[in-house]
Design a binder for these strands. Structure first.
Length: 402
DNA sequence: GTCAATTCACATGAAAGAGACCACGGTCTAGTG
DNA sequence: CTAGACCGTGGTCTCTTTCATGTGAATTGACGA
């Protein structure tokens, strides 16, 4: 495109009407002033945390609920208010929020402690130190001043599944070693069964209090969407039934409000791109497809080469569908593919793991079945909609050539 | 026909290795006064 | 004399391999009716 053309384009873009008024209210980091249908939970959490304002140690809290039920939102909201109150009263209090799922941030014991220590002003190198050392540095940081600490560990189940419950044990025990400071932990998890697998000592101290977030129902999601849409969009851009449809989609998926909001936002973007002044029900369908496609394409292109080879093997086995494939077949195709592309061949053990990861990502459906005399294997079928298969296939082919 | 044993083709777990990345402390080197 | 370059050691972390053990039902074969 020539320079002048670009200028015109940007100019036009700026002047173009948008359905959005304030888009960020539909995005994840946004915290509304009023959180609908979570009064009960907010009150509970506030009650439990309140003692920290008097310098006492609040109980540890364990919070669970499915994704998109407002756990993180509510906790962030309440802790923020708590922090404000503490500042007014001049109470020494520090609240640190950590998302344990973020790769390279806090998904191992070392990194979690390092992250916490960094938040306390002690910078720790990303690797290289014995974990013991990191704990010491962390303790020193804790003890520099007399203070109450509240650590919010989001998606804590991810961390524990990976590294075991040592971390939590150490953290809960640190209270005894930290002379002047007291720490409380708020653990947030999607997985309700998670606590059951914990070491009993850890369990009893971590879940001194428990707060449960039930899924929203369709009506509640509608109300939430309305609340946000009010600010997010210009007046009268929503066609009749749009909100209802968004809510219905999300409710079908165990009441995930985040999904619903994303759907609405993307629908708005689609409408914008089409220069439509209104968001129609059709846009929602398109948005849903787009989200799906983007998600899968994103996953696929960021996977390492070996994963892509495995996926390609599955794809090339797919044409004779209406019959599912098994691990052994996939592995055979994969092996020949490796030879063709001059890639080192991984063991079947590894492929087995990769397949189960694909299953978790929703790219394939893999179920372990027993074929009796003919052994036990995974029953694999594609979990991607037919429409985008060709695109993915060419994408993979391009990537493999490199 | 019934029932337990067998058997297949992997699944699943645990442990350990390879290799990348990094910090730290000690040693060496070259530049400075 | 000192700052910086350059090791060697020891640590984490991810991806893999190796070895070991587990598993569920179709099949088999013995057994009794």
């Amino acid at each position: 495109m020539i320079e002048g053309g670009l200028d015109v384009f940007f100019e036009a873009f700026l002047r173009k009407d948008s359905v959005f008024f304030e888009k960020r209210t539909l995005q994840t980091p946004y915290i509304p002033e009023i959180i609908l249908y979570r009064e009960e939970q907010t009150k509970q959490i506030a009650n439990i945390l309140a003692p920290s304002l008097k310098g006492d140690k609040p109980s540890n809290i364990f919070i669970y609920g499915k994704t998109g039920t407002g756990k993180t939102l509510t906790v962030k909201h309440t802790t923020k208010k708590l922090m404000e109150a503490a500042e007014r009263e001049n109470t020494p209090l520090k609240i640190i929020y950590v998302n344990c799922k973020l790769k390279r941030s806090a998904d191992t014991e070392y990194r979690l402690i390092a992250h916490l220590a960094t938040e306390l002003g002690k910078s720790i190198p990303p690797t290289g130190l014995p974990t013991e050392e990191v704990y010491k540095a962390f303790l020193r940081a804790l003890n520099t001043q007399k203070q109450n600490y509240i650590f919010v560990l989001d998606e804590i189940d991810q961390l524990i599944n990976k590294t075991g419950d040592n971390v939590l044990y150490n953290l809960t025990r640190i209270n005894e070693e930290a002379a002047d400071s007291q720490i409380s932990i708020i653990g947030i998890s999607n997985d309700i069964m998670f606590v059951d697998n914990l070491d009993p000592r850890v369990r009893s101290s971590l879940s001194e209090e428990e707060v449960v977030f039930p899924p929203y129902n369709a009506l509640q999601i509608q109300a939430i969407l309305r609340q946000r849409a009010e600010i997010a969009f210009n007046k009268d851009v929503l066609e009749q039934g749009v909100i209802e449809k968004c809510a219905a989609y999300a409710a079908r998926d165990h009441g995930d409000a985040r999904r619903a909001l994303e759907l609405l936002r993307v629908a708005g973007e689609v409408a914008d791109r089409k220069n439509s002044k209104k968001i129609t029900i059709g846009h929602i369908d398109e948005a849903e497809e787009k989200i799906d496609r983007d998600r899968i394409i994103d996953i696929i292109t960021t996977q390492p080469k070996q994963y892509q080879l495995v996926l390609y093997s599955i794809l090339s086995l797919n044409p004779n569908r209406n019959k599912n494939m098994f691990t052994g077949e996939v592995y055979e195709v994969y092996k020949s593919l490796c030879r063709k592309t001059n890639t080192s061949i991984l063991t079947q053990r590894r492929i087995s793991d990769i397949l189960s990861e694909f299953d978790m990502l929703g790219i394939v459906n893999a179920k372990v079945i027993s074929k009796g005399r003919y052994g036990r294997t995974r029953d694999i079928s594609l979990g991607i909609s037919e429409a985008i298969l060709p695109k993915i296939k060419t994408l993979l082919e391009e990537n493999m050539r490199v």
